[in-house]
Design a protein around this nucleic acid. Structure first.
Lengths: 199, 199, 199, 199
DNA sequence: GATGAATGAGCCTTCATTCAT
DNA sequence: GATGAATGAAGGCTCATTCAT
């Protein structure tokens, strides 16, 4: 089936040019197939775009959206989720580039083009906010609006991922995750937790 | 001169719809002038877009890009710059909305549509990186890649500004700046500075 | 305004080629204008087609659809309506050709492409059926299903009009109407009325 | 052989949607065969359409186009032909629906899509005109252009057939033929023949 | 022989841009 | 200077048709 091939090629083209500037013809050319063949698999440009997001976001949300284990330290739970988020995007670089180009959901949820993105963002925001609230409750995090903190953490992760791409994708996901963890703790935890965790 | 009128109207339309989805016709209608008149002032859609950025970025860079006073505490200098950045965007909400919609330069410098943006980002990155490096040098900031820290700080500011818009633009720039300052110090300074500054 | 020019040109092209085989490009070329100009006046092929029908049918129905004068002989009333119908189409030959090509509503009302046509046919059928029923009631017409008789009369008129076109459009509307009247009386009236009217 | 199956299925689809709106794919689906198989039997959409008409029209013309028996009353000969025409179409309802949708040859001979139709119409017109002329010659029919009378009679038959379909195809061909015969005599015969034949 | 898979060519529609008035 | 009117140049999408298996 062409489906997977098309999705991968389309990710590359969308990542390079953005949704609007991408011509369906270009995607077909990138796949090495004809326009009509592509339209045989996806019903149109929008559906193709949606399909990419659905494909990737279902996987990402599947990995990430389980309820947090109450026995695990809530701070570690969040950091673990961030690790999954980062690892996933490092496995799907072209999707990451699409994400970085158009996906600043934290800035304007309304700007998301397809329902799959909007739903995933809504779900992620819900889960993230709850997790941050739990940390605040437990005294593990500074007192502030948990939704705002979560959005900030997403932006910080995106910066790290963007820097990873700019730097030639050389670092391993473990290295990136480690750095991210330190920045995270510093940004969101009270002094004694910072001291304890970053010792 | 129509110039200022067109720029303001165009900001609104671009902010609402994004560059690609905005039709020049719509901008003219928003201005209450004819298409041909608009083309008499700006040579095309791209030039209009550039002109907006030039107009705003020249002002912003003018306010922000003086060399830092060596007598002033380098940390305070950065925070002052952030204050200016935030204040400026709170005075130009439509431009801010354009900025948030398309301007995640920290993520992908290559995605910037117009040279004005690219230059301003390059200059800002240069200044910011130097300032962060000075702070690190002075032991006021944690040791890390100053460019990465700067990009992170930009993203954090953008999140704050986005939240300010989402929240109905109720807070004053002072309130936003205060909160931003605390988040900044926490995220980027070593423990003893945090203790000192957030006392 | 191009509206009238386009409608006339489009009638010609649609009459020659039929709706499906007509390319909007052809209509524009027939008008001597560009495609985009045509689209500035009509929003699309369907709307253009509808507009033609609306334009013509509003006029035709305006001429034809008044209530019948109860003082006038009901048979004469119907014949008068037929005269108007024929005269109208002889004034609008290209519309007549479209009508003959696609407008066999009497055969399959469901096949009408645009609402304007469907409504006009529904209204015409209603009026015609009522008028025929009145004639039957008055003993001026043979006893049969008035709707069927009406549909037959429409088909007969269309044959006359088609023959008029095939014959080079030489006859006057009076001549055509006269012949039509004789055929009408013969086909639908009982013997004594035929004798009386065709004396 | 798929030939007959395809023709029957295609008739149904063409009757429902019309030539232009029918996709070859839909015909294949209706047959339950693949597109390529269909193209193995017919060389294209046009040829398929032609084949349907050829198939049906050869049969119809075979039944109808013998020379008239000079010993039989010429009026009865025509009525007998009409009976055959009606009976044939009542046996092939989908073909009848195609015929009613696109086949108003009496209106515009030029609009016939395929040569089979055009030839059959030309032959039918020739035969019909000759037969009507013979009736006129014999004083059995009113004096008028025999071709026009023939075209009118075809239209009248089509109206009856359309009404038969609309009415749920309940009447037998004998019933329809009877009614048609009465309408025919009334429309085309002089008073004394009407009196004699409709007694 | 039957088919799934593939495509070339074309049509409708949009929009940035120009120019005569 | 301002504009209404006009258009060239694309882009999304469809469908009749073919061909390797």
């Amino acid at each position: 089936m062409y489906r997977a091939l098309i999705i991968e090629s389309a990710e590359r083209v969308f990542a390079d040019a953005g949704f609007e500037a991408t011509r369906v013809q270009d995607v077909a050319a990138e796949c090495g197939i004809s326009l009509a063949t592509l339209y045989g698999v996806f019903r149109g440009k929008n559906e193709l775009y949606s399909a990419i997001h659905k494909e990737r976001l279902v996987e990402l949300m599947g990995r990430i959206s389980h309820e947090l284990d109450p026995d695990v330290d809530p701070l570690d739970s969040i950091i673990e989720r961030d690790r999954i988020y980062v690892e996933f995007h490092m496995e799907h670089v072209d999707y990451l580039r699409m994400h970085l180009r158009e996906g600043n959901a934290w800035a304007a949820g309304a700007s998301l083009r397809v329902p799959e993105q909007a739903q995933a963002w809504a779900r992620g925001l819900e889960l993230g906010t709850a997790a941050f609230a739990a940390c605040i409750e437990a005294g593990l995090m500074i007192e502030d609006d948990p939704a705002l903190l979560f959005r900030t953490s997403v932006a910080m992760n995106q910066v790290r991922l963007a820097a990873w791409i700019d730097g030639g994708q050389r670092e391993s996901s473990d290295e990136v995750t480690q750095r991210m963890r330190r920045a995270f703790v510093r940004a969101f935890c009270p002094a004694h937790i910072v001291a304890e965790r970053l010792a």
